Amino acid sequence: MTGRQARHPLFGQMSRRSMLAGAAAGVVAPMAATALGGGRAAAAVRDRSTPSVRGETKRVTLYAEELPGGLYGYGLEPGKATIPGPVLELWEGDTLEIDLVNNTDRRLSIHPHGVEYDTESDGSPLNDSFNEPGETRTYVWRTRPQSQGPDGFWLPGSAGYWHYHDHALGSDHGTEGIAKGLYGALVVRREGDLLPDRQFTIVFNDMTINNKVAPDLPVLVADLGERVEFIAIGHGSNFHTFHLHAHRWADNRTGYLMGPDDRSRIIDNRDLNPGDSFGFQVIAGDGVGPGAWMYHCHVQSHSETGMNGVFLVRNADGSMPEGAQEAIDRYRQHGGGGH
């Protein structure tokens, strides 16, 4: 297990607005530890050398572990499981082999959305695909680029903002596992996609965000002008909408426009229902400047009961903008409140 992880070097800071074109297939971005904090996407574990071929096979080890409070999480190292789990990243055409180590006394699994796999890697008890307590099992996920299908139609590739989750803890549907934190983001990028400077995973899980509620959510932090990627995922049994104050994105695969004639709808609020996921990138503070900006579920009763957090855009030099600390203090004292 340790040897496999050692083959995934930790690379330095990515350049702002750098392009994916010509970069190698990404594997794992361990953003979960800072998914509701101030971590840079520069902390991502990705291969940035120029590949000679596409369609590489990557391997990573995940550890499923019990956390305080009866929760569970996935992690890249023993004793470092988080909620949400680490962001897994691939390029279209790549294969990811996941060695899932079950360090709990419960049956569990890992099931992906948006990629391809055999029944043995389904992660569901229906296909006898899960980990018994203490068991290590390998799951294989495949991706592919767009291709021309019959009669001139094009078949979709795998690129998108997807997610993964347990499908076996507590029942054959993994309802308990998801409720207790066994989930994470899965990103499949296409050549030409933009890489972010910072990356945050936000999961609306029943009436929580990443299994927390305001005012206990860490503040998301970026500097003015940085490219920030949000990955939004829905779980549980409730209808939600995701709203980000003062920032907008295009309602398409990436969240940004492909040119002046791109007619994608521009939004700042989108439905986020159970099993759904989407992602987008924004330039922090573009047009509005630095400050403490809210994000929250726009179902008002949900926001009022704690489904809200703060996206802090600092000054370009990393200093606190005027009035931002006071806004954060008010959030901590009053638990936010949606608008």
Rank of each mutant, 00 (worst) to 15 (best):
residue 233 I to D: 11
residue 306 G to D: 05
residue 106 R to Y: 02
residue 151 D to A: 14
residue 283 I to S: 09
residue 71 L to M: 01
residue 290 P to M: 03
residue 64 A to D: 03
residue 180 K to P: 00
residue 45 V to F: 02
residue 231 I to M: 13
residue 149 G to D: 06
residue 166 D to A: 02
residue 161 Y to E: 08
residue 53 V to C: 05
residue 55 G to E: 02
residue 50 T to V: 13
residue 31 M to A: 12
residue 273 N to G: 05
residue 315 N to F: 01
residue 52 S to V: 15
residue 122 D to F: 05
residue 64 A to G: 11
residue 237 S to D: 15
residue 194 L to I: 14
residue 233 I to T: 14
residue 300 Q to V: 15
residue 245 H to P: 00
residue 174 G to T: 02
residue 159 A to Y: 08
residue 276 D to H: 10
residue 24 A to S: 15
residue 76 L to S: 02
residue 286 D to S: 14
residue 144 R to I: 02
residue 291 G to W: 06
residue 193 D to W: 05
residue 46 R to C: 05
residue 39 G to S: 01
residue 42 A to D: 14
residue 127 N to C: 11
residue 160 G to K: 07
residue 221 V to C: 06
residue 246 A to Q: 13
residue 181 G to T: 00
residue 187 V to Q: 11
residue 259 G to E: 08
residue 128 D to F: 10
residue 108 L to G: 02
residue 88 L to K: 04
residue 167 H to G: 09
residue 146 Q to G: 13
residue 313 V to C: 04
residue 326 E to I: 04
residue 298 H to D: 15
residue 38 G to P: 01
residue 95 T to M: 05
residue 200 F to N: 05
residue 189 R to I: 12
residue 325 Q to Y: 00
residue 79 G to W: 01
residue 196 P to N: 07
residue 63 Y to A: 05
residue 270 R to E: 12
residue 196 P to S: 10
residue 274 P to T: 02
residue 262 D to R: 00
residue 88 L to W: 00
residue 89 E to H: 04
residue 211 N to G: 02
residue 243 H to L: 08
residue 246 A to E: 15
residue 314 R to Q: 15
residue 128 D to S: 14
residue 30 P to V: 12
residue 177 G to N: 10
residue 79 G to H: 03
residue 8 H to Y: 09
residue 154 W to I: 12
residue 135 E to D: 01
residue 178 I to Y: 00
residue 258 M to Q: 10
residue 58 K to M: 08
residue 13 Q to H: 09
residue 296 H to W: 03
residue 21 A to S: 14
residue 16 R to G: 15
residue 248 R to K: 13
residue 207 M to L: 14
residue 320 M to I: 12
residue 318 G to W: 01
residue 160 G to Y: 09
residue 42 A to I: 06
residue 22 G to H: 04
residue 127 N to A: 13
residue 299 V to R: 02
residue 101 V to H: 09
residue 195 L to N: 11
residue 250 A to T: 02
residue 66 E to Q: 15
residue 218 P to W: 01
residue 270 R to T: 08
residue 121 S to F: 03
residue 227 R to P: 06
residue 68 P to W: 01
residue 142 R to I: 04
residue 158 S to A: 07
residue 159 A to W: 06
residue 108 L to M: 13
residue 281 Q to G: 05
residue 17 R to I: 10
residue 38 G to K: 04
residue 81 A to F: 01
residue 84 P to G: 01
residue 50 T to P: 09
residue 256 Y to N: 14
residue 130 F to A: 11
residue 141 W to D: 10
residue 202 I to Q: 07
residue 76 L to Y: 01
residue 32 A to L: 04
